[in-house]
């Protein structure tokens, strides 16, 4: 589990990030799910929103913003952000490919898939980003989709049965053709 704060690189995000209006509304809605004196419960959902809004990772500045938003001490956010593996503590490429490496996926070729993706993207697993800045490769543990192995998760989407070159190509093509990041669910709500 990544626990090392020294690992965090200096941010290139704007000095004082701000949540969009849509995200602020979503956060307000989420806070109502918990008792009034238990705002801290909203921490994980708000960290997910923050990571999606600010380029796929949570910089120290973004973590401080989350702390301010929920009236927490920054340390309460840091210790949580570093405990859970979904939060990236370093800048990432446009698309983070999370490849499942656990037993059942390994039985159906996840090692071969990882090697194949390293060759195709030019990035190495372990959080490295491809030279073109498009792909970061990360190995993760079981994604609860073992019957459709091997699996890659990109943001909220699962790409399944990546045991043929065609399926892998289709995934990469789809991601390469994505000009902007997808509209986030709270942005979609605000548009309606």
């Amino acid at each position: 589990m990544p626990l090392n704060l020294i690992d965090m690189e200096p941010t290139n995000a704007p000095a004082k990030p701000q949540f969009s209006a849509a995200a602020q509304d979503e956060i307000k809605r989420i806070i109502t799910h918990y008792p009034e004196d238990r705002k801290k419960s909203a921490l994980l959902p708000v960290l997910h929103i923050a990571q999606a809004e600010f380029g796929g990772w949570v910089s120290p500045e973004v973590q401080t913003l989350v702390a301010e938003t929920l009236d927490l001490k920054p340390i309460e956010v840091y210790e949580v952000a570093t405990f859970y593996t979904m939060f990236n503590l370093k800048p990432v490429g446009k698309h983070v490919l999370e490849i499942c490496r656990t037993g059942p996926c390994m039985l159906r070729g996840s090692d071969e898939l990882t090697a194949h993706l390293e060759r195709l993207t030019g990035a190495r697993v372990g959080g490295e980003t491809s030279p073109d800045g498009l792909f970061t490769l990360k190995e993760v543990e079981c994604l609860a989709a073992c019957g459709f192995a091997p699996i890659v998760q990109v943001r909220e989407k699962y790409y399944e049965q990546l045991d043929t070159p065609e399926n892998v190509d289709a995934m990469l093509t789809e991601l390469r053709n994505m000009v902007h990041r997808p509209i986030l669910p709270w942005e979609a709500l605000a548009q309606n």
């Binding site: 589990m1 799910h33 419960s41 994980l44 959902p45 960290l47 997910h48 949580v80 405990f83 859970y84 593996t85 979904m86 939060f87 993760v140 543990e141 079981c142």
Partner: peptide
């Protein structure tokens, strides 16, 4: 009854 969904953060 109020019912809410709460996401984790990646930890078995």
């Amino acid at each position: 009854l109020d019912l809410h969904v709460h996401p984790g953060g990646g930890a078995y």
